[in-house]
Each structure stands twice: as structure tokens, then as C-alpha cells.
Amino acid sequence: MLWHCMRQSAAKRFFPLPNEIFSLRLSSGALAVHSYLLFCEDRKTYQCWPSYRSIGGAVCMSVNTVRKYVAELEERGMIVTEPTSIVTRDGRKRNGTLRYTILPIQNAVDLHNQRQLRRLEETTKQMRVSKKLAANKEHPA
């Protein structure tokens, strides 16, 4: 019986970090913030509500730095943030913390691959134009 209790508590102390995350070429700060959000998330809803300050305290970053990395994670398609609000005891409505929704890693991988393919197509197009310009300079009409 003791072993069963130990296994359950051990499972609660760990969270999965997908291997694909390393193919996304995230900055170390974004990886740290994403890891903390995974640590905080409700595994049924994939959401969490930590403040910038609590994230920064956990990963040793300032609030502004956390904000920058949250924006990077959003831009990469790894999370979605939504503002929340609270009502104080005296009835005033105030801004709450952000609600973070952790998106499936495959979405971010697909977005990353699409962007890489688009960059490759643009580079190929630029190279074709450069070759045509060079050919026109050598053999003007």
C-alpha cells in the first residue's frame, strides 16, 4: 500500500516535456517559461494562471523578460493567452492574471515547418531573380 501512495505522489511531481520542443529552436528563456507553464497546467484543461511575477520568480527572470518570452511562445504557436478579470471585495472590476492555454506541440512543429518552407521558397525565388539579372547583364538585349 505504501508503494502505491509513493507512485501516485511521484507521478504528480513530474510533467512531460515533448522531445519535439527541441526541434523548434526556442531560446533558453522561452524554454524555461514554457517548462514552468507545463509544470503549472491543469492536465485536464491544459490551462494555468500564473502571474508574470510568479513565473519570473520560478525561472529567475524579471517580469519584462517573462513578458518577452511569453510573446515568443505565443508567436511560435505554443500557447494562447487570454486576459482575465477579478471583482474585488468592494465590487470593483480589476485585471487578473493571464490564462495560459498550452497548445499541442504538433501545432507548433507544423507552424515552424511551414515557416521554414516559406523562407526556403522565398530564398529560391530570390536566387532565380538574381540569376536572371546576372544573365541580362552579361547578354543585354
Rank of each mutant, 00 (worst) to 15 (best):
H34A: 02
Q47C: 08
V59L: 02
F15M: 13
L133S: 05
F22A: 09
E74D: 08
T101D: 00
V87M: 13
G96T: 08
T65K: 11
F22N: 11
H139L: 07
F39K: 13
S54F: 04
M1P: 05
Q126G: 09
M61Y: 14
P18F: 05
S35R: 07
A141Q: 02
I86F: 06
A135N: 05
V66Y: 00
F39W: 06
Y69T: 13
R118W: 13
Y36F: 08
R94E: 04
W3A: 10
A30H: 02
S27R: 05
R128C: 15
A108N: 04
L103D: 01
M6N: 15
Y46Q: 12
E122P: 02
M78A: 06
E72M: 01
N95L: 06
A135Q: 06
R119P: 00
R128K: 14
K132Q: 04
C48E: 00
S85E: 09
V129L: 05
D110Y: 05
Y69K: 08
I79V: 09
E138Q: 09
C40S: 14
E72I: 06
S9Q: 10
A108F: 06
E121W: 13
E41N: 03
D42E: 11
V109R: 01
W49A: 13
I55E: 00
D42M: 03
L31T: 14
I105L: 12
T88K: 10
K68M: 10
M78F: 09
T124C: 12
I102Q: 01
L73R: 01
S23E: 15
K93Q: 08
I105R: 03
M1H: 11
R7Q: 14
L98F: 09
T81K: 15
E41L: 07
H34I: 15
N136I: 06
A134N: 13
A141D: 13
S9L: 05
H112V: 00
K93W: 07
N19Q: 13
F39H: 12
E138T: 14
A135G: 14
V80M: 14
L24T: 00
S23M: 14
R76L: 03
G57A: 15
H139S: 10
M127C: 03
C5L: 02
Y52G: 01
A134E: 10
R94Q: 15
E121G: 07
I55R: 00
L38S: 08
H112Q: 06
P83V: 06
F15R: 11
K93L: 12
G77I: 04
A11W: 10
E41K: 06
R94C: 04
L98D: 00
T123W: 05
L37I: 12
F22Y: 11
Q114C: 08
L31C: 15
R25Y: 08
F15E: 15
Y46K: 11
G56Q: 03
P50A: 02
A71M: 02
L103H: 06
H34E: 06
F15H: 12
T65C: 15
K132Y: 03
S130M: 11
A108D: 05
S28M: 08
P50H: 01
L17Q: 11
R25T: 01
L73T: 02
E72K: 04
K132F: 08
T97L: 09
E72G: 00
R67M: 05
